[in-house]
Computed example of a mutant assay.
Amino acid sequence: MHIFNVRKTNSFGLNRSFLQNKALVGSIVLSIALQLVAIYVPLMNDLLGTEPLRLITWGMILAAAILSTIVVGVFNKIKYHH
Rank of each mutant, 00 (worst) to 15 (best):
F12P: 03
I32G: 00
L36Q: 08
M60C: 10
G59T: 12
A23T: 08
A23L: 11
I28L: 14
A65P: 01
G49Q: 03
Y40P: 03
H82K: 15
L62N: 06
Y40H: 10
V72C: 01
F4T: 00
A33Y: 08
G26Q: 09
T69R: 03
I32R: 05
R54V: 13
L67E: 09
H82T: 10
L55C: 11
I78M: 10
F4D: 02
G73K: 02
V41Q: 05
N5L: 00
V71C: 07
P52G: 12
V72K: 01
N76H: 11
G73Q: 07
L55V: 14
V29M: 10
I66M: 01
A65G: 14
V29C: 09
N45T: 08
K8A: 06
R16N: 11
H81Q: 13
H81F: 04
T9Q: 09
R16E: 09
L34I: 14
T50R: 09
L47C: 04
G49N: 04
F12G: 07
I32N: 03
N45K: 03
I70M: 09
N21H: 08
N21Y: 01
I32H: 03
Y40F: 13
H2A: 05
K8S: 05
R7L: 03
S17W: 10
H81R: 14
A33I: 14
N21M: 06
D46V: 12
Y40W: 07
G13H: 02
L19G: 12
N15V: 04
N15G: 10
A23S: 13
W58V: 02
L30F: 03
A63I: 07
S27N: 15
F12H: 06
I78C: 05
S11K: 09
L67I: 12
N15Y: 06
I70G: 03
V72N: 00
G59R: 05
F4R: 00
I3L: 06
G73L: 02
L55S: 14
L47E: 06
Q20V: 06
T57Y: 00
S17G: 11
L55K: 14
L36K: 10
V41R: 04
V74A: 02
T50H: 09
W58I: 01
T57C: 04
M60G: 14
Q20N: 13
S31Y: 10
S68M: 13
I56D: 10
L14T: 02
S11D: 13
K77V: 07
I32A: 07
L43G: 02
M1W: 08
R16F: 07
F18H: 03
K8Y: 13
G26I: 06
T69V: 05
L43V: 11
F18W: 04
G59H: 06
L67F: 13
M60Q: 08
I32Q: 09
